[in-house]
Design a protein around this nucleic acid. Structure first.
Lengths: 194, 194
DNA sequence: TTGATTCTGGACCGATCAGTCAACCAAGGA
DNA sequence: TCCTTGGTTGACTGATCGGTCCAGAATCAA
């Protein structure tokens, strides 16, 4: 190794991720990426291969980061049910800019999962990660008697993931925080005893 | 008017819609469109203005068609609750190709609603159309005592739309029909009395 | 200090993009 | 019949796309 790179690989990857997150894959030009990353063209191609590889890495990074955040927030709640509630309500509590930006995972599925097998494979991992995270916390909530005993943990976990995805689409479509809260509240009634 | 057009405007619009539906906006080239529409380049530009205008018309057509279909299926059920159930389950019952294709309305929101005000405006109309359709059938179901009396019709309507969007994303992400049915079933428990 | 190695910057590449132009052609009205 | 109107066709445009090449600069080992 003769000359060290003048940038931090992780740092520029995060900046690239932010651009893809904001604009999507096709709508992002390499120029956009280079400007945001603050590096030269050749450095980008040497370090990440090409635009698609960079996207795949950005997506992977996003999913790892968000997945860890989800698991953490689910465990940090004062109770399992409260944690689930807070995760759903968090979408409604985001800033307008955050709600408009949406979710890179959802965007990848919608824009690319059909054409790119590697994107499909990555998002499937993300799906399993989120499903099982929700499933575990539902199991925990059930054990503590916070939710209806007859709910199936796996099904409920998948339902919660679908709910978050639905919330993300509704948020991007311009639904108000209040509407998003209402949706989340109705979703939660499928778990709560009554 | 000297020479009549050699094609049916509605027919070629539908074919363009199918391409946008399949591939998204950015990933669709004008070549793709012309090939599918079976008309010449100039004919397309004369008739629809440009690629963006064509997309907007295609989206509008899609929403009108799908919205009407939704309302019809909601009213055609043997009972309001059964109709709701069938609409949710219909996503799971689609062919693999249909599940992979997804929904042009959802794709528009995710890909374009942030950058194009006209797309945002159109999808907002679509959202209101679907929300109110679901709201009406929930009200009907409640009147017939099929669902929990304490549910708020508007909130439940919006929740059902979010659920369909979540199902569409999960379907595109590769969830099996069985998983999709499970998700729909859990969603329905938020309405059903127990 | 020098030579091998790696990184950087910017010019450059062919391909493809959305969109236009102009020559040709078909139909209706006088 | 012939001329006007409008439709079709395919070549063409400038811009932008993702990606490469290459000359020069920076760093390390010897």
């Amino acid at each position: 190794m003769a000359r060290p790179k003048e940038f931090d690989r992780d740092e520029v990857l995060k900046r690239a991720m932010a651009v893809f997150w904001e604009k999507g894959y096709e709508a992002t030009s390499t120029e956009d990426l280079l400007r945001a990353m603050g590096i030269g063209r050749q450095s980008m191609y040497d370090t990440f291969g090409d635009k698609r590889r960079l996207y795949l890495e950005a997506l992977q990074h996003y999913q790892a980061e968000q997945g860890a955040g989800l698991i953490e927030r689910l465990q940090a709640g004062e109770s399992p049910l409260r944690a689930i509630e807070q995760v759903l309500m968090a979408v409604a509590a985001e800033t307008p800019a955050e709600r408009a930006r949406g979710c890179l995972y959802v965007s990848s599925i919608v824009e690319l999962a059909q054409k790119d097998p590697e994107v499909a494979s990555l998002t499937k991992s993300g799906t399993i990660l989120c499903e099982t995270a929700f499933e575990r916390i539902v199991r925990e909530a059930k054990r503590k008697g916070e939710i209806e005993p007859c709910v199936d943990e796996r099904k409920a976990g998948r339902f919660l993931l679908a709910t978050v995805q639905g919330l993300r689409v509704m948020a991007k479509a311009g639904s108000t925080p209040e509407t998003l809260r209402d949706i989340a509240a109705v979703a939660l009634t499928s778990l709560k005893p009554r």
